[in-house]
Each structure stands twice: as structure tokens, then as C-alpha cells.
Simulated scan of single mutants.
Amino acid sequence: MPFATQPVRRVAAAEGVRVSGAWPHTIPAVHQLLTDGLDLEPGVTFLVGENGAGKSTIVEAVAMAFGLSPEGGSTGARLTTRATESPLAADLQLTRGVGAKRAGFFLRAETMHGFYTYLEQNPRTSGPPDAAFHELSHGESFLTLISDRFTRQGFYCLDEPESALSFSSSLAVVGVLNRLAESGSQVLCATHSPVIAALPNATILEVGDWGIRRTIWEDLRLVQNWKAYLQAPERYLRHVL
């Protein structure tokens, strides 16, 4: 893709980086990323997998390598409280698109309340003021932020945005992601939600013990497990109750 214009064309190991026996290199998906690299398609790419499979680690590292704050926000945000991010970002090299936009935003579910405080302490100098996010419910604040901030063409990284959302709110996020893709933005999203991952025309990468593999929504273990559970929850509940 020599003339691709999306913000990030490829993610690979930086020059001189070798795969080690230390975490997070020991995660199969990270090992594959550093060994083989990963081409990112235009539009929306989902990373789907179990806890600990590496999807959030990868999204966080790509966001940081792009120049976004590890605790969330736009390319200009510099929120820092307690560093918990992995060192993976320093091992990555991003290949940018020709003339691609430099704007971006990282939505990280676990640090959003800290980000709301950051916005209160660093109010906008132009345009309408931000909503009083701390006065909204968890889900309402997420939707308000996404609707308000996901407007510029650029690169958007989301780490499990569904954690605060109901079914109907998750559908609303699908609409926002579709709008971003149609307007020329690029999205990398780690998710456990079969609702969000069902976005038509999205690229789906399933991460696990095998590393990273491209798949379709119907073949995701996540989707198959949810279908089986909803059809007969007692088959699963008898093992935990």
C-alpha cells in the first residue's frame, strides 16, 4: 500500500528490536506483531479475544506510538497519574499514510474518570464548554464524550468502550464508528462486545494462544459462546452455581 492515506498503514517492530522472553513479548499476539508486523486496513479494525490475550496491550501501545496519552484523550492531552502501561510502545514503529491526518483520540475505559477531571482542569479555550461528565452516569458520560470528541478525521483507538454501555448505547457506538469510517477516519478497537464487533465491513482480528488471525463475526468464539449461552444458560450456570 505505497500510497495508502489512512493514518496508520502498518505496525511492526522498531529497528533493532528483537523478541525477548519477557512480558509482554511472551504474549502470542504481541510476539506475532513484533515478528511479522501487522497491516492496518482503512476504516474500523476490531481486536477480539479473552482477557489476557493481548488486545488491550496492543491497542494501548499503538495509541502511544501514535503520540496519544496512555491514559486517554486527544493528541494534545497529557494526563498522567499512575503509570501502568506496558513498555511495548517503545518497541513499535508505525508506518504512516501519505498525507494522513495527525489528529487522534484514545478512549481507555479504565481511566476515563481521571480524564474527565483532566478536562475540568484544562477547559477548552474555544468552542462550547465540555459537559459536566462527572455529573452524568457512567454510560451517559461515555456516549457524550464519544459524540462530542469523535468528530475530526484521524486515528481513534478504543479499549473496551462497551464496559459502561447498555445494549442500546452499544448500538449507538456502532453508529459513531460507522460514521468515522465513512468520513475517512481509522479506528482500532479492542472489544468483548458481539454487538459492537458486528459493525458491517469492519476488519476483525481474533487474538489468543494462536497469536492474531483474521476472521469474520460469525466465526468468533465470542459470538458462538454468547449464542450458546443465550439459548441455554443453564448449561453454563450449573458449573458455577
Rank of each mutant, 00 (worst) to 15 (best):
L94I: 14
G16Y: 07
E120C: 07
W210Y: 15
L220T: 06
T125N: 08
M64E: 02
R221Y: 11
P2T: 05
G37I: 07
G211C: 13
G139V: 10
E206L: 12
S86F: 05
A109N: 10
F46I: 09
R221K: 15
N51L: 07
W226K: 05
R149P: 02
S147Y: 02
L177C: 03
G52T: 13
G21P: 00
E218H: 09
P233D: 13
T45H: 00
V17L: 06
F133L: 07
T26E: 09
F115Q: 02
A14G: 13
T117Q: 00
F167T: 12
A103L: 05
Q121G: 05
T191W: 00
T80H: 12
R124L: 08
L237N: 11
C189F: 07
A100Q: 03
D130M: 06
P161M: 05
L107E: 12
R102G: 08
L241M: 08
F142C: 09
R238L: 09
V30K: 04
P70A: 09
Y236K: 11
H25T: 04
A61E: 01
E182K: 15
C189S: 07
P161N: 05
A65I: 09
D39W: 09
L158I: 14
G114I: 04
G97D: 14
L158Y: 11
G114N: 11
V207G: 02
S169K: 01
P70I: 11
G154A: 12
M112F: 12
G21R: 08
H239N: 13
R179G: 09
H192Y: 08
A132M: 04
S185Y: 13
T117H: 00
P233K: 09
A53N: 02
P233R: 12
Q32K: 10
G43Y: 01
R235E: 12
Q6D: 13
A197P: 04
N122E: 13
W23D: 01
Q93M: 08
L171C: 15
S166H: 03
E60V: 00
S147A: 06
H239S: 12
Y156C: 01
R179L: 08
